[in-house]
Computed example of a mutant assay.
Amino acid sequence: MFELAVCAEMVFRQLPFVERVKKIAALGFQVEIWDWTKHDIDALAATGAKFSSMTGYIEGDLITEAGAQRLIETAEQSIGIAKQLNCPRLNLHGTGLNDRGLPVAPTPIVTGAMWLAAQHTLQRVAELGRRADVVFCLENLNTEVDHPGVPFAKAADTLALVSAVGSAHLRLNLDLYHAQIGEGNLIELLRRALPFVGEIQVADVPGRCEPGTGEIHYPAIARALAQAGYRGTVGLEAWASGDDARALQRFSDAFAV
């Protein structure tokens, strides 16, 4: 019922990256990647894997003039890589992140002017997506555990921005791991957000491992998605709690509605 994808950055980490991609594809999943500048794109394209999403910028932010311009410039570069990989979705965050997932420029207070600037920047991003026929997805993050200081982090924030822009080329990457930590009430959140969702990502809480290792009852999430008519991509962005192949099977089982 759903298209299932797996983040190659987080599983089969004992293998070289290209071999991870091949392994995930051989198990029947689409593949997600993060920062494309760290990978051999020609080698990834040659694997024949179906890529679901990738990071859609290298650096920049939504709120400063220089940061927004840099985000647009690197989003344009990312579109070229996405075309090479035939990857339909490019991921965005409220601001640029470093290698540890922390904001390059922490923003503990978000003003009204920042909201307006972010909306304007995302309108520019959506126009890029329209011209290139790709979809940029704005991801919610949690600030309590993994990403302190990121602006526009909660699902409520990303939903407000995406709905304000109102473009089919700017959607939500609704990450339920982050939403559980930051907001909870996941099924109601899904019902509100689904008209704007481009992709859903999952991991369990606590620990950010595969479904079945924590407090989120993902089979109930899967049933709610099916009942609401969602037929899109669900991506596993999680560490394996033990055996990697077993973790992927648990993910698949949780969404076998």
Rank of each mutant, 00 (worst) to 15 (best):
V234N: 00
Q123W: 01
L62P: 01
L71R: 09
E65V: 15
S53W: 00
L138T: 13
V6Y: 02
R100M: 12
Q77I: 07
E76A: 14
R246G: 04
T158V: 11
S52L: 08
H147F: 05
R130V: 06
Q227P: 00
R250S: 13
Y230K: 12
V257T: 12
L27H: 11
P103E: 08
T121W: 09
K154R: 14
A156T: 15
Q227H: 11
E32G: 15
G48M: 05
L159A: 08
M54R: 01
L44I: 03
L174M: 11
A153R: 01
V197I: 13
E73D: 13
V205R: 03
M114V: 03
H217I: 15
R208A: 11
P151A: 05
L102A: 06
S252N: 12
R208L: 08
A226G: 05
C87D: 06
E215L: 13
E76H: 07
T95K: 03
G101K: 07
F196C: 09
T37Y: 00
L92K: 07
V135L: 03
V31Y: 05
G166M: 09
A75M: 10
V145S: 01
L189F: 00
V150E: 06
Y177A: 01
I187V: 14
A220R: 15
A155F: 04
V31C: 09
I109Y: 13
F12Y: 15
P148I: 12
V21A: 07
L186E: 05
T121P: 10
A193N: 05
L161P: 08
D99I: 00
V197R: 05
G242N: 04
T111F: 10
H147E: 05
R131G: 09
L161K: 02
Y57P: 01
L4D: 09
G166W: 06
A5Y: 02
L62D: 07
C87H: 12
R131K: 14
P108G: 02
E188P: 03
L186T: 10
V257W: 09
G101L: 07
H120T: 15
D42M: 07
E183L: 12
A26T: 12
F12N: 06
A247V: 06
A164R: 09
I81D: 00
H178L: 11
A8E: 01
L85S: 08
A160V: 07
N173V: 15
K38V: 00
H147N: 14
P88Q: 08
G80S: 12
N185I: 14
T233C: 09
D35Y: 05
H217G: 01
L92R: 06
A75D: 09
T74L: 10
N98T: 04
D61P: 03
R131W: 01
L85P: 08
T158Q: 04
P206D: 12
H217Q: 13
N185S: 13
G48A: 02
I33M: 02
F136P: 00
V125I: 15
A256M: 10
E210A: 14
Q249T: 11
S163E: 14
H120L: 11
T158L: 03
L71W: 11
E183D: 11
F2Q: 07
P108C: 01
G242D: 04
I72G: 14
T233I: 15
D99E: 14
A45W: 08
Y218S: 06
A45M: 07
Q84C: 01
H169T: 02
E210L: 14
N140T: 11
A43R: 11
I216V: 15
D133L: 07
A168M: 09
E127H: 08
